[in-house]
């Protein structure tokens, strides 16, 4: 064989192997130091920044071991795909159960009945969908019915790419169905609603920015916690939160990715971490970050913070996420139908 060809092949292989070798320098592990990887969705950064040190202290006191956290935040669906493709999460704390279901069904990294592992559908807190309008509510938006009036611009992200937007869509659907009495009426309602949408951002936070920073639109459909954040911090005094007559109970779930935790030997601490979210201390932190706490006592304490809204649920009114996703958001579903028909 040609000597030159051998040299060439060696150089090419050596160069190609370089980046791989760079990754093999793993850090030495201290048996008393535990690293927990929490893969979460976008808006929870402040929440876990408050909870993680508290849990670390709690765990240190209980077992004498140190826990450090690796946090990853991103869109809920994208994070779920990353776990399926091998991101070594010990726990997943995502925006909707559908995304954790996908991890269970497509990668079998946790049991299919994961949602039964922890109390309250494995959702330590809830939230809902509300409206955010500009100060003084110039368009007089009080309820879903006002959103389809001519000249009202509605901002919502794209349900095809954003988990939060799916909650928006389903809440709107629930209203349309209740007001009109049929699926056909609901479809007519959301068709009119989306005709009033000038921009479909790819994520929930993109929509908030479009509404708040770009000044586009009259009303933003948003997570309650996001709306509070926008009202109280982002654009203090420029916006008002409007509670509609009907909304949807959003239950962001948490789960131990058992296959990964087993591999890392973190099953116990991962489970304790998620259970810690249900303790009064964590529930208070949750309420401070504008999520609705599950603990009745803490809920009572923060009662005045959250408006009372009648809510439908995904399981009772839509037959669960798998069905809702297929009917409404997959290719050829209701959302495609209403946005492509002219």
């Amino acid at each position: 064989m040609n000597r030159r060809a051998v040299i060439t092949a060696t150089i090419a292989l050596g160069l190609a192997a370089g980046p791989f070798l760079a990754g093999c320098t793993s850090k030495p592990t201290d048996p008393n130091a535990i690293v927990l990887t929490n893969v979460s969705y976008d808006p929870t950064r402040e929440l876990y920044q408050a909870i993680n040190p508290a849990f670390a202290a709690f765990w240190k006191q209980k077992t004498g071991k140190d826990v450090t956290f690796r946090m990853s935040h991103g869109g809920s669906g994208k994070q779920s795909r990353a776990i399926i493709d091998g991101l070594d999460a010990d726990v997943a704390t995502l925006g909707l159960a559908y995304d954790i279901d996908a991890i269970a069904t497509k990668a079998t990294l946790l049991p299919a009945d994961w949602q039964k592992a922890l109390p309250d559908n494995s959702s330590p807190y809830t939230s809902t969908i509300v409206f955010l309008v500009r100060k003084g509510n110039p368009k007089g938006i009080k309820d879903w019915g006002d959103l389809v009036k001519p000249g009202v611009q509605v901002i919502t992200p794209n349900p095809k790419t954003s988990g939060g937007a799916r909650w928006n869509f389903l809440a709107a659907w629930a209203y349309g169905k209740k007001a009109g009495g049929s699926d056909a009426a609901a479809e007519a309602y959301v068709t009119k609603l989306f005709a009033n949408v000038p921009v479909l951002d790819s994520g929930a936070r993109g929509s908030t920015t479009t509404f708040v920073e770009r000044g586009i639109g009259d009303v933003l459909l948003a997570w309650e916690n996001e709306a509070f954040l926008a009202e109280k911090e982002l654009g203090k005094g420029q916006f008002e939160l409007v509670a509609p007559s009907l909304s949807i109970l959003a239950e962001p779930p948490v789960a131990v990715i058992s296959a990964n935790a087993k591999k890392h030997g973190t099953e116990e601490v991962a489970d304790a971490y998620l259970r810690y979210l249900y303790t009064p201390e964590a529930q208070a932190a949750i309420a401070h970050n504008f999520y609705r706490p599950r603990d009745p006592k803490i809920a009572e304490q923060f009662k005045s913070q959250f408006p009372q809204i009648p809510m439908v649920t995904i399981d009772k009114d839509f037959g669960g996420w798998a069905k809702a996703q297929k009917t409404f958001f997959d290719d050829g579903g209701v959302f495609d139908r209403i946005t492509t028909k002219k």
Binding site: A102, K106, N158
Partner: peptide, 23 residues
């Protein structure tokens, strides 16, 4: 881009849309 289907929806966005359905 406004990402409105059929109007301002670019092709790479469709790829992301497919991924979002685990397709």
């Amino acid at each position: 881009s406004g990402n409105m289907p059929g109007k301002t929806e670019i092709a790479p966005l469709l790829i992301v849309t497919q991924l979002e359905q685990y397709a």
